[in-house]
């Protein structure tokens, strides 16, 4: 395991109570694999990725849990050294993540010389190599970010992340802002580079089709917690948590035939005051009274395909029911909220 996250807790300062954006999430990333971190917006997946980088917004704090990178606990001191050299980040919007007043080449060179050990000339050459690696012409190094198209910016962001030859890349919705065709191209580039450089990648996305297209393993997050994890093929073909089943219904699927999209009714809980028991229970068509008490979460070292659902034993039956759109209509949900 190159990265292990155990019981991570990140709180945002709130008026009355803190918002528990990440509340006891645990997952692991095997070396040389692409792991998808999926969930609706606001489920804490981006916050978790930023907590790993050790760069949280001013009103957020990491209040608990442990993050280990290659067996070494990541604290501020360790991160100071590892940041970008070992763990790099591909942001969601490459436009706003590039400084508008410097050329893209200058920004690549800045990383290479200030965080790497290269001199000016060597940095120029390396920057050109990196651009070629991600499929951009080295001539474009002299351009400013606003002169790039969306897809080119995203490629530049990937080049930026690869600059210091890190072993782990956190990619936060790297293709969300792009149209479908460019999405494919960028994802293919990412995949090719990952295999060629034997990178480990955490791919944060809300789009389950991206996971299906690219990922080896998947971690499903809901309301700050991990509800299901396992090999991507398994989890997508045979989801065991009702949330994953619902998520799969709600997105057009690239691997299986698209059926009518069925949204999950309701919205995620208020994380300043989360419900007791399973957090998905208020929206779950299969929730029982027992689901609203105690705590349920996927353990850190659970191997293989695991689910946090209380009714995990009946997963096969639930999955069949979940295929029926009627199951997800509001009226059919038992009055648990």
């Amino acid at each position: 395991m190159i990265l292990e996250v155990r019981d991570l807790e990140v709180h945002y300062r709130g008026k009355a109570a803190p918002t528990r954006a990440v509340d006891g999430a645990s997952f692991a990333v095997p070396a040389g694999q692409i792991v998808g971190l999926v969930g609706e917006s606001g489920c804490g997946k981006t916050t978790a990725a930023r907590a790993i980088m050790g760069v949280l917004p001013g009103n957020a704090r990491c209040v608990g849990g442990e993050i280990r990178f290659k067996g070494r606990t990541l604290d501020n001191a360790a991160m100071h050294d590892l940041r970008w050299r070992q763990i790099a980040y591909v942001p969601q919007s490459a436009m706003s993540s590039l400084d508008p007043v410097y050329t893209v080449g200058a920004q690549l060179a800045e990383v290479l010389t200030k965080r790497g050990t290269l001199g000016r000339a060597a940095a120029q050459a390396r920057a050109a190599d990196l651009f070629e690696l991600v499929g951009l012409g080295p001539r474009r190094l002299a351009d400013y970010p606003h002169q790039f198209s969306g897809g080119m910016r995203q490629r530049a962001a990937i080049a930026m992340a690869l600059a210091l030859e890190p072993s782990l890349i956190l990619a936060d919705e790297p293709v969300t802002a792009l149209d479908v065709i460019v999405q494919r191209q960028v994802l293919d580039t990412l995949r090719a580079l990952q295999q060629r450089l034997n990178l480990s990648v955490v791919l944060v996305t809300h789009d389950i089709s991206v996971v299906a297209y690219l990922c080896d393993a998947v971690v499903v997050m809901y309301a700050g917690q991990v509800v299901e994890s396992g090999p991507a093929r398994d989890v997508l073909a045979h989801p065991r948590h009702p949330y994953t089943m619902g998520l799969r219904n709600a997105f057009p699927d690239l691997t299986s035939r698209a059926t009518d999209l069925v949204p999950i009714d309701g919205s995620p809980p208020d994380l300043a005051d989360p419900p007791a028991g399973c957090r998905f229970a208020p929206r779950c068509p299969f929730a029982l009274a027992a689901c609203t008490t105690g705590t349920v979460a996927v353990g850190a070292d659970a191997p293989g395909h695991v689910s946090a659902c209380r009714r995990d034993g009946e997963a096969d039956a639930l999955r069949r029911a979940a295929l029926e759109p009627a199951t997800w209509q509001r009226s059919s949900i038992s009055a648990t909220s």
Binding site: Y89, P91, P100, R115
Partner: peptide, 26 residues
């Protein structure tokens, strides 16, 4: 609060470099 300043932090640049070269320049 701009993303490129957050990214500069992620890249591990010094506080001084982030404030002067990136934030103040903009």
């Amino acid at each position: 609060h701009e993303e490129f300043v957050v990214m500069a932090r992620m890249k591990g640049f010094s506080q001084w470099r982030i404030v002067i070269r990136h934030a103040a320049r903009n």
